[in-house]
Design a protein around this nucleic acid. Structure first.
Length: 466
RNA sequence: GGCGUGGUAGCCAAGCGGUUAGGCAGAGGUCUGCAAAACCUUUCAGAUCGGUUCGACUCCGAUCCACGCCUCCA
């Protein structure tokens, strides 16, 4: 199957060809662990998790690296504010990150390197850049000479002189050129530091990704992914230093996910308009949040609101509903292989993802599949398992449908306990047996008030939460 | 100011130069003791103005609007 990606580097959709046949090496920029992750962090994580699952489905051997930035100004400042040891802070936040990602069904990366555990590699790379004459030392800092790199701006589409004319570039007397960026920051009292040939200090932001990517994926790999807000300066700087150092392209394909927006404004820490995953996960099933994120193609901006998320539930319930219906008489036996009819759905689903990860299109195939399954147009076992198998590529539909409907998907105030529900259900069953419809309906209403729906089918009554 | 992205029905969200995307919501119906689910029917598009074309939501241009990057940011 031919895969096409929109490559941020060429600004075009292009055919994807791995460097080594059958293998795909991906580096994904992770988070700076000074605070809890918010929905924006989840977006990239979920979409690139889908990328990984999709490639594996096609038989590629994928190496997926996602780093933690665990040393930087914000970490130091936040630790001081909270009276914590910076290391304590980052450990806490890494743990929280991992838990949040798990709740969203995001598989842990193959490698999750931390900047502070790669100081040696960072120093070595800085050393190389100094030796090449594209970096310079100044009072314990080491800066990269942006003008030494001919291709500077090729990713972000900026040119150096335009950047300079803007007034937003920080003035720093130590730099030879205002655009130069720090590879190594000289030690300041009270801050963590490591010894280095350039003096005690700590790494700059961009160098860690270059050093760790090179270590785990080699100097030239297939895909570099991250949020679109990282294009400049982070990824531009990564390209400059890595390509200066290794004299070859850093990544063939650059993928950038769009931003989550709140009332059309980018969700960001600085605007304060963000929802942490903690907060959202306490209110919604992780899978619902994931479904929401997968409902839009990864490059476009997405408006988040509680209403928008709640509306998505109906769609996800529909897919689970088809599975629920299909297994009413027991879970069908997994077929040995798929019929041509089933394979046609699978093919359309995969083709959608092969077209720059068009997850909304893939999802539409799932809805069509659900309908065919509901209508009995597809063999029960074929349809049931195909829906689950394809759902798995999006990281969805892996829960038991019966439990899916019994658990609150949007968690509100505590509803009726299962014991209370069962007791009322029993009372209704007796009323029905006596054909006391008024009494039976009264119980139904009572349960409905508690958010519980009853399903009478073949003489058996089951319940679900709305 | 520089660079870039987008404006699709009540809402969300895709593809496509000519053939129903899909989901939610709304209306009517089938089924059901009543419901729920499911199924059937149905209402509702392509910011504006020009151009190219036999034909444009889809290509080109202009205008308006919204958003992103240019400072840390997923």
């Amino acid at each position: 199957m031919k895969i096409h990606f929109h490559n941020s580097l060429t600004k075009q959709k292009e055919l994807f060809t791995p460097l080594i046949e059958g293998q795909v090496k991906i580096y994904c920029c992770g988070v700076t662990v000074y605070d809890l992750c918010h929905l924006g962090h989840a977006r990239g994580a979920v979409n690139f998790d889908v990328l990984r699952r999709f490639l594996e489905e096609l038989g590629y051997q994928v190496t997926f690296v996602k780093n933690y930035t665990d040393i930087d100004d914000k970490i130091i400042n936040r630790a001081v504010e909270q009276g914590l040891d910076w290391k304590q802070l980052t450990q806490t936040m890494i743990l929280a990150h991992d838990q949040d990602m798990e709740a969203l069904g995001v598989r842990p990366p193959d490698l999750a390197p931390k900047a502070t555990e790669h100081i040696e590699e960072i120093i070595a790379m800085t050393r190389s850049l100094l030796d090449l004459g594209v970096a310079y030392q100044k009072d314990g800092d080491v800066f990269f000479k942006v003008r030494s790199f001919e291709g500077y701006g090729k990713l972000s589409g900026k040119n150096i002189d335009d950047l300079l004319s803007g007034s937003r570039v920080e003035v720093n007397e130590a730099k030879e050129d205002a655009l130069d960026f720090a590879l190594w920051k000289a030690h300041k009292p009270g801050e963590p530091f490591w010894e280095s040939p350039f003096g005690p200090g700590r790494p700059g932001w961009h160098i860690e990704c270059s050093a760790m990517a090179a270590k785990y994926l080699g100097p030239h790999f297939d895909i570099h992914a991250g949020g679109s807000d990282l294009i400049f300066p982070h990824h531009e700087n990564e390209i400059a230093q890595s390509e200066s150092c290794h004299h070859q392209p850093l990544a063939n394909v650059w993928l950038h996910n769009g931003m989550i927006k709140i009332e059309s404004q980018k969700m960001s820490k600085s605007l304060g308009n963000f929802y942490t995953l903690r907060e959202l996960l306490s209110k919604y099933q992780g899978e619902l949040i994931r479904f929401f994120l997968v409902s839009a193609q990864y490059r476009v901006g997405v408006n988040f609101s509680h209403e928008a998320l709640a509306e998505k539930l109906e769609g996800l319930d529909r897919l689970y509903g088809a599975l629920f219906k299909a297994q009413e008489t027991g879970i069908p036996e997994e077929p040995f292989d798929y019929s041509p009819a089933a394979l046609a759905y699978k093919n359309r689903f995969l083709e959608a993802l092969a077209d720059d990860l068009n997850s909304p299109m893939a999802l539409s195939v799932l809805f069509e599949l659900a309908k065919a399954l509901n209508l009995g147009q597809l063999d029960l076992a074929q349809g049931y398992w195909l829906l689950k198998d394809l759902g798995a590529i999006l990281g969805l539909l892996q829960q038991d449908p019966e439990l899916w409907f019994k658990n609150p998907r949007i968690k509100g105030e505590e509803g009726l306990s299962e014991e209370a529900i069962e007791a009322l259900l029993e009372a209704r069953t007796q009323a029905r047996a006596a054909k006391d419809w008024a009494k039976a309906d009264q119980v139904r209403d009572q349960l409905a008030q508690g958010g519980v729906i009853l399903i009478d089918k073949d003489g058996v009554t089951r319940w679900q939460r709305k």
